[in-house]
Amino acid sequence: MTLYGLTAAPVARRLGAVRPARARPLLVGGDPWAVELARALRSAGLEVLMWAGSEEQRERIREAGLELAPGELLAAATGRGARLEGITAVLLLTDEDDFNALASTVLSRGAGIPVHRLGPRSGDHGVVAPYGGDDTLLAPGLTRLGVAHRHAQGAHIVTHRVDTTAGTLPDRHDLLLLVRPDGRLVPADGRAAPAPQPGDIAVMRPRC
């Protein structure tokens, strides 16, 4: 798979141009579990936008009723295609570890918005991925391959509004991220799961 043409600073300028009042994350990738995550975020009240490289993944996004970024991402970055202004966060969810790491580095330098990527499947996989920063998604011990496998086994992503007093999460679930009341995304970043606060919506995966 190609690196989607995402190799230049104009991408960052495009993604960070305007900030709307409502949270609008961009999810890059179209695997089934990523589409399910997007639907969960939409159910939490976010205006989710998705982009994927292959037509198969783009069709999957359309069939799920999610908003698909029009045109090619490179065209959007160079001003010839889709307008992607208003993005408030980027989640890089493709199955190419090096792409996720490279795109995260490029966007983080100029986007002015949070950019998170999936960590590499292992410490020795890929050329760029093992040396990226710590801005990775998923809790310790929960890999992209593990999430995809659980999805295939029927462990679907669920949401849970945190109790106003308890601030606890259901047992036997892995936290993927929290949605704060203002729409901010707080991912479980590969180091430690974030502490839920009253009013948060937790996006979780049941343990098999």
Rank of each mutant, 00 (worst) to 15 (best):
112 G>H: 00
159 T>G: 03
117 R>C: 03
81 G>W: 00
116 H>T: 04
150 R>A: 13
92 L>K: 01
93 L>E: 04
155 A>S: 09
154 G>A: 06
62 R>P: 02
103 A>F: 00
66 L>Y: 00
88 T>L: 13
84 L>I: 13
104 S>D: 11
60 R>V: 03
91 L>W: 15
105 T>S: 06
79 G>L: 12
65 G>A: 12
113 I>S: 03
86 G>T: 05
77 A>W: 02
61 I>P: 15
109 R>Y: 08
62 R>G: 04
115 V>C: 08
99 F>Q: 06
130 P>H: 11
150 R>E: 03
141 G>W: 05
105 T>E: 05
125 H>K: 14
125 H>C: 12
155 A>W: 01
156 H>Q: 10
80 R>K: 14
115 V>A: 05
120 P>S: 11
113 I>Q: 02
76 A>Y: 06
86 G>K: 02
148 A>M: 07
156 H>M: 12
137 L>N: 05
98 D>W: 03
127 V>H: 13
93 L>P: 11
65 G>V: 14
134 D>P: 15
139 A>H: 06
85 E>P: 10
101 A>K: 10
135 D>A: 08
94 T>E: 05
157 I>E: 06
83 R>F: 01
116 H>Q: 07
103 A>E: 04
103 A>C: 08
98 D>L: 05
88 T>E: 11
157 I>P: 01
158 V>G: 11
61 I>K: 10
155 A>T: 05
95 D>K: 09
120 P>E: 07
60 R>C: 02
136 T>I: 13
141 G>S: 13
66 L>G: 01
105 T>F: 01
140 P>T: 12
148 A>R: 14
139 A>T: 08
59 E>K: 01
136 T>E: 10
98 D>N: 04
79 G>P: 01
146 G>S: 12
133 G>A: 12
99 F>E: 04
74 L>E: 14
136 T>N: 10
97 D>G: 14
85 E>R: 10
129 A>Q: 08
108 S>L: 00
159 T>C: 08
149 H>A: 15
153 Q>W: 01
72 E>N: 11
136 T>A: 13
82 A>Y: 04
65 G>R: 14
79 G>H: 09
137 L>Q: 08
115 V>Q: 03
77 A>I: 07
67 E>V: 04
74 L>Y: 10
135 D>M: 02
135 D>N: 07
80 R>M: 13
138 L>G: 06
160 H>E: 11
94 T>L: 11
123 G>E: 10
85 E>L: 01
157 I>Q: 08
59 E>P: 00
66 L>N: 00
93 L>C: 11
116 H>C: 11
108 S>F: 02
67 E>N: 05
148 A>T: 06
58 R>Y: 02
152 A>M: 10
131 Y>F: 15
63 E>A: 15
98 D>R: 01
88 T>R: 12
79 G>R: 12
128 V>I: 15
101 A>W: 04
155 A>F: 10
150 R>S: 08
135 D>Y: 02
